[in-house]
Design a binder for these strands. Structure first.
Lengths: 211, 211
DNA sequence: ACAATTGCTGACTCATTGGTCATTAAGGGC
DNA sequence: GCCCTTAATGACCAATGAGTCAGCAATTGT
């Protein structure tokens, strides 16, 4: 009696394929990835993949969405739920979150989005609506809370909360491009940036002013 | 007498082809660009293109090199030649340079480098040696001059001069990804960043310290 | 046990495209 | 004006890879 050549596992397939695709895209980029490879990684045939995803492009979009949405919503609720001061939040949870990104698979998304974004306008629209604008919104909440509480002065950060995360993107791009040639201590870069920003906007009540 | 079907212009061809390729790569990315398209844009046959460039990849590398090298060396000499104070240089020439990047064709290079870099290790090595490290070096010179002259205090910028340009990269990536969906006033973002950084590191001799 | 259902396979098609090469003709030298 | 060198052409080849489909076999129902 021959071992079964496959099992029918309708429920599990999409997630398995998505996961495999993420890995493949991460290694080779969109164009560099063969649909057949994704299928092999997922342990299924190419035909089956096409049963769950109409085209390679649709698979690509599914990958992006499935990976990015959970992370951003986790970050947002950490912002709204915290009872830390704005400064403490920036030095603590925010910094941890920032540090984790250049090391996590999420960094791959940046590569994919930069490389393929222009070809998929609906994908970038989705990304704006469900990721970027929400993230910026959360950052603004932190800054405004700091101002409300008298921790921070009004500053450019009120208008451009993005300035809090520009080094995150920098770290990600650096690690993608120079990975093999030149290492960068992204943790310390990010810490330094927070220090710099805080030095600029903090209202120091309890510090020696006369130095 | 039939019009000549072509002219022989050995000298001019490489530059023409490189220029055409830059435009094509800018629009479609590396994989999305057909060699035949590049040839048509340049007004030559595909065969001729292969007479000047051995492969598509070699053409790609030639494009990157020809566009990026002049810009970086211009920036470097502006740093060494200036007699402005460090602060004035940052507010003036540096800011102008930064503002120009998200609007110039150079931003395309970022897309190409992020997307294709991992596939071409020798290219990223070249880029590191001849662009990135030189740029960082120039930035560090500015910061150190500021410290030497008593304009700036020692800060994280001494170790990570990159922090001066992270918003430039951010602006470039933003404009690539969200071009059509969401505009960003990159000029003001960059100005704000410089203000923020200066506020953090400036030693204010002539300011009310007792507030 | 048998049939009906349907998840799954993989060989096939067909369009696409990087790269080649035999041929053509422009233009300099005499 | 006529060679002769070589810049330039474009039809062609071989490979590749996205997407299809006819059939097969794991389950489910009875």
């Amino acid at each position: 009696m021959p071992a079964a050549r496959f099992q029918r596992r309708k429920e599990a397939r999409p997630a398995e394929i998505t996961q495999a695709a993420m890995e493949a895209f991460a290694e080779k980029g969109y164009d560099g990835t063969r649909v057949d490879d994704v299928a092999k990684r997922a342990g299924v045939s190419k035909g089956l993949l096409y049963l769950y995803f109409k085209t390679k492009e649709e698979l690509f979009k599914a990958v992006i969405k499935s990976f990015v949405t959970p992370r951003i919503s986790a970050f947002r609720s950490s912002v709204t739920d915290t009872d830390l001061s704005a400064e403490a939040f920036l030095r603590g949870p925010f910094l941890e979150f920032a540090k984790s990104i250049p090391k996590s698979p999420v960094r791959i998304l940046v590569r994919l989005l930069v490389a393929e974004g222009p070809k998929h306008p609906d994908l970038t629209a989705y990304y704006w609506d469900n990721v970027a604008s929400l993230g910026i919104d959360a950052l603004r909440q932190i800054v405004e809370k700091g101002v409300r509480n008298g921790e921070f002065r009004e500053s450019a950060l009120n208008e451009f909360p993005q300035l809090l995360v520009t080094p995150v993107l920098f770290s990600v791009v650096w690690s993608i491009v120079f990975e093999t040639h030149q290492s960068l201590d992204t943790d310390r870069l990010l810490e330094s940036h927070i220090e710099l920003v805080l030095a600029a906007i903090e209202i120091r009540h309890d510090e020696d002013d006369s130095r």
